[in-house]
Write a protein that binds this DNA or RNA. Structure first.
Lengths: 147, 147
DNA sequence: TATTGTTATACTCTATAACTATA
DNA sequence: TATAGTTATAGAGTATAACAATA
């Protein structure tokens, strides 16, 4: 006899962090799947969104806004530039202002649509009046200082 | 003049998923730091908690409860067994029931204490009456079916 | 001095595929 | 047929360190 349904006692069930991690993993896996269809990773799509809204932004600022370190921005920017999705113009001797190419704008529009539908699908059950409170709660958690 | 404080427009700021990911990343980074002091990874500590509460559980069940695939449980179990934290007794020809050794129980107790303090530090600002609702919300998000 | 950008490197988590053995 | 466990492999994100060039 197969007893697949044996319920385990989960001492982590009362930890908010445990559920936060599980929820984030599920959301990210779905997002990755949605964006893979247009050959973008979540981090790449987020960067395109930010560049679209802030033309001329440097990769350092994009990284700071998204929580991605400088060292990890370099290969991503190189990838997007090689695909012809973004272009750079020097703003001073060491920085480059990034902007979307025509193709980059088209891809970014698709990414935006997919990301919005994705977010709505996962968060659609949350009453609109509670979403801002949830966002504020999550933002506060993200900014909790580390001891 | 350095303009570090230029505020970028973030089109993702209204997406719950964006903040969910940032919050989870911050929490996980802190948890990893807390557990590194007792030489445990978050996934290992979670597994020890589950084995402590369910002696004789198989690694497959631990994986299912934590969202870790069979293939990724194997090396973790081998690591914990090699350190002498867990031991296994055959339950049938293909499964092994896992339990904590004396040393494993001691480490698990430390892990539990650290994880509870960690969770309390991040979630302490949330009114107790709202925590269950937040957990329920996150659990629902985690179970949202993927299209 | 601080910041930008880059390269190299390593770790963790996750994912799939393929295989053996057992229920 | 389904499940348990293993092995190999790959991808993605993240982290630090070190360096050159510029502010």
């Amino acid at each position: 006899m197969t007893r697949r349904s044996t319920t385990l006692i989960n001492p982590l069930a009362g930890h908010v962090g445990f559920h936060l991690r599980r929820a984030s993993a599920a959301v990210m896996a779905d997002l990755a799947g949605q964006l893979a269809e247009i050959a973008l990773r979540p981090a790449e799509a987020s960067a395109l969104m930010l560049i679209a809204a802030n033309p001329g932004v440097t990769q350092s600022k994009v990284g700071r806004a998204l929580g991605i370190q400088r060292a990890n921005m370099a290969p991503m920017v190189a990838r997007l530039a090689e695909r012809g999705l973004i272009a750079g113009a020097p703003v001073d001797g060491r920085s480059t202002g990034l902007s979307l190419t025509a193709e980059g704008s088209a891809i970014a529009a698709q990414a935006r649509s997919r990301m919005e539908q994705h977010d709505a699908r996962f968060m659609g059950d949350i009453p609109p009046g509670e979403r801002d409170a949830l966002i504020a709660r999550l933002a506060a958690v993200a900014k909790t200082r580390t001891v």
